[in-house]
Write a protein that binds this DNA or RNA. Structure first.
Length: 531
DNA sequence: TTCTATGGGATCTAAAGTCG
DNA sequence: CGACTTTAGATCCCATAGAA
């Protein structure tokens, strides 16, 4: 005899199958008549199918009800505390937590604390805050102004719910971690993971003493219970943006944020007109204003890169700041100036010092060794020391950061060169006059001014080594060839000769800002700001 | 040594798409 | 419109690397 469920063969009829454990009391005895056996077997099969249908229906019912009622997912929550190396998870304290994907950070925090308190008797009865794995407080989706929900966070990090781990830590630990980071004056720049304090009414407020280096609103900002209160009182940039966002365009948000900036008094009027004109020409519908506002909105207000700048050597301080591995172009900037003897200026950066720093930095960049040429028609040139120190890359990055953070551009590059640099012009042209080497300039002028083919050939022969170096020495068939030779040489002189420098400079603009919408549009933006 | 994070494969489920 | 197929997402399990 066989079990109708699992097929296990058994000799003695029992009430339950010894293989699958199911009720088989309905299975007829072996010694029944053939006819009876046949009909009963039929019944058994019918019962089996009935049973299977019932199970199937049950399974479907379960799935449907699960879909409606069990709209929960499982994530992990752990505990962080302050250690020497910063905020670190406590090992062995992570617990799974069933949550609704639409929960906000406040609701999630409540559930996480309850779960952790249930399983950990040593949980203090104090105020906790919710943290991302990097130790920053959970309020918005990182890099955006979108309020946190588990669902959005899951999409942003691209992990499954099961792989998401969030942490709680005591408010005390979080604040002490921030204060110690702020007081760490050994390093010029630290990452501060709380919103920089800004006042909607003033650009610059007094820089408080080291003893009270944490401004009062920052102390309160991580408080969950006071979150909404803080938002009203502090009026951070992002909040300003979000509150005014309902009735303004993103560009208006940007201009509101950075309204006080004066890029270049001599060119700002013309720039505005050009900006408008160019906006209409933007082929993909995305204006430069949109691009810059999009980029500005991507700046992470919850983390700041701090720069200590000596006014006597702005370049040096900036260069060290941008070289740090911890520096991110997407972070906000907090600048603190000091004078020649190292005395700090008593001002907290809420925008004004940053813009002043960026203006001074752009002035410093104009005189760097990687540029050559006239004041407003400079070109990139190769400098081995600068290349060794990756100066091309960092200067490119500084320019991009300056523009996005509301500062000026260097306003010194040749228009032709810049159009080529940003990919607007595929071919490059420049006047011979821009060449700084007097001998080369003289030679090219001789070629250009040749009046006959024979004279051109003689001059070409005379400067053959120079032309061969640039790969444009050729046999002159007509007098018109002189234009081609001059153009080729200029292209080599400004572009191909400095190709690596240009690539490095360009590379900085491509990597400075992550997830930037449209490099082409960004280059258009650069054109606006630099000219 | 233990714990945690992560990658990859297998499996299941729901939603979307296709077809008669 | 219903049956069937395809696809994406979620989950489980195992192996592995790295941190504490």
């Amino acid at each position: 005899m066989y079990c109708p469920f699992c097929g296990f063969q058994f000799e003695n009829l029992t009430k339950f199958c010894c293989s699958c454990g199911k009720d088989i009391s309905f299975v007829p005895a072996k010694d029944a008549s053939t006819e009876q056996e046949h009909s009963r077997a039929k019944t058994v099969v019918q019962q089996f199918f009935k049973y299977r249908e019932g199970k199937e229906a049950e399974r479907r019912m379960f799935s449907k009800s699960k879909k409606k009622s069990m709209k929960t997912v499982k994530i992990s929550v752990g505990i962080m505390n302050k250690q020497k190396t910063g905020m670190r998870p406590i090992r062995g304290k992570s617990l799974p937590l069933h949550v609704d994907p639409s929960w906000s950070s406040e609701r999630l925090l409540g559930a996480a604390i309850k779960k952790l308190k249930d399983f950990n008797q040593d949980m203090k009865d104090v105020e906790y805050i919710l943290l991302y794995p990097d130790g920053s407080q959970i309020k918005n989706i990182p890099g955006t102004d979108t309020p946190f929900t588990i669902e959005l966070y899951k999409e942003a990090v691209g992990k499954s719910y099961q792989r998401i781990t969030l942490f709680v830590c005591t408010l005390e630990d979080f604040l002490s971690e921030y204060v110690s980071a702020s007081e760490d004056e050994e390093d010029d720049e630290v990452i501060v993971r709380v919103p920089p304090v800004t006042s909607p009414l003033s650009d610059t407020v007094l820089w408080s003493s080291p003893e009270s280096s944490t401004p009062e609103p920052i102390r309160r900002s991580p408080s969950i219970s006071q979150t909404s209160d803080v938002q009203v009182q502090c009026g951070t940039e992002s909040q300003m943006a979000s509150t005014s966002g309902e009735h303004t365009t993103s560009y208006n948000i940007y201009t509101n944020i950075y309204a006080p900036v004066v890029i270049d008094s001599s060119s700002s009027d013309a720039e505005g007109e050009e900006l408008q004109k160019e906006n209409c020409d933007e082929p993909d519908g995305l204006t430069a204003a949109d691009v810059i506002s999009n980029l500005a909105l991507k700046i992470n207000k919850t983390s700041c890169s701090r720069f200590n700048i000596n006014r006597a050597n702005v370049w040096d301080g900036a260069y060290r700041g941008f070289r740090r591995s911890s520096y991110s172009p997407n972070s906000g900037m907090m600048v603190k100036f000091s004078d020649d003897v190292g005395l700090a200026e008593e001002a907290i950066d809420t925008g004004g010092p940053t813009r002043e720093f960026l203006t001074l930095l752009m002035e410093a960049i104009r005189t760097r060794r990687i540029f050559e040429g006239k004041d407003y028609a400079k070109y990139l040139t190769f400098h081995s020391k600068a290349a060794d120190e990756n100066e091309y890359f960092y200067i490119g990055r500084m320019i991009a950061v300056s523009i996005v953070h509301g500062g000026p551009g260097p306003c010194c590059l040749s228009p032709n060169f810049f159009m080529y640099l940003v990919g607007k012009d595929k071919t490059f042209e420049a006047p011979i006059d821009d060449i700084t080497d007097e001998e080369i300039k003289k030679a090219l002028l001789e070629i250009k001014n040749a009046t006959s083919l024979s004279e051109l050939r003689v001059i070409s022969e005379k400067h053959s080594s120079m032309l061969q170096t640039a790969g444009c020495y050729r046999f002159m068939r007509t007098l018109e060839d002189k234009k081609k030779v001059v153009a080729d040489y200029i292209q080599w002189y400004f572009i191909y000769r400095n190709y690596l420098s240009i690539q490095s400079f360009r590379g900085s603009n491509n990597t400075g800002f992550s997830k930037r919408p449209g490099t082409a549009s960004f280059t258009l933006l650069l054109i606006h700001v630099l000219h």
